[in-house]
C-alpha cells in the first residue's frame, strides 16, 4: 500500500455506493495507520433532482460520529459545487493532503467516450499521490 510521505490529511472522495465505501475503508485504514486527519468529500453539481451519489446529511453525520468516536480526526465536506473533480482536487490542495483516495469503476468504451469520470480527472489533476481503489 501507498505510504504517505508528508503528514498531511487523507482526502476521500466519497459516494454512498460500493465504490465510495471501498475508498472510504482504505482512507480510514491509512489515516489510522499514519495518525493523520481524514477529510471526507461528498460534493454534487446539484443539477439533477436526485443525485444517488450525494449522501444524506444524516448518513454523513453518523459516519463522522462513528469514525471520530475512536480518536480519528474527521471532517466532512458536503457542498454544492460547479465541478466535483475540481472540488476534490481543490480540497486536497488547500489542506496540503498527503493522499487522495478515489473509488473507480469499470466503464464501457462508449461510457469512456461520452462521460467524464470524476475519478479519472482527480487522478490526472491532483498534485499529491492518488490511490484508486476497486471494491471487492
Amino acid at each position: 500500500m501507498n505510504t504517505p510521505i508528508t503528514d498531511g490529511p487523507v482526502v476521500v472522495a466519497y459516494a454512498p455506493d460500493k465504490f465510495g465505501r471501498a475508498a472510504l475503508d482504505h482512507g480510514v485504514a491509512l489515516a489510522r495507520r499514519d495518525g493523520v486527519p481524514l477529510i471526507i468529500v461528498n460534493d454534487t453539481r446539484g443539477d439533477a433532482y436526485v443525485d444517488k451519489r450525494f449522501a444524506g446529511d444524516e448518513e454523513l453525520a453518523t459516519l463522522e460520529r462513528e469514525l471520530s468516536a475512536d480518536g480519528l480526526t474527521v471532517s466532512v465536506r458536503h457542498d454544492l459545487v460547479q465541478d466535483v473533480a475540481e472540488a476534490v482536487v481543490a480540497v486536497a490542495d488547500a489542506e496540503a493532503a498527503s493522499l487522495v483516495v478515489v473509488g473507480v469503476r469499470r466503464r464501457t468504451a462508449v461510457g469512456k467516450a461520452l462521460l467524464g469520470s470524476v475519478a479519472q480527472r482527480v487522478i490526472l489533476d491532483a498534485r499529491c499521490p492518488v490511490l484508486a481503489v476497486k471494491p471487492d
Binding site: 453539481r45 443539477d47 460547479q82 465541478d83 461520452l114 462521460l115 467524464g116
Partner: peptide, 12 residues
C-alpha cells in the same frame, strides 16, 4: 446556458 459542461454529449 443552464450550466451543463458535457457539451460533446449534449451536441450528440
Amino acid at each position: 446556458a443552464l450550466g451543463s459542461r458535457t457539451w460533446v454529449r449534449n451536441l450528440a
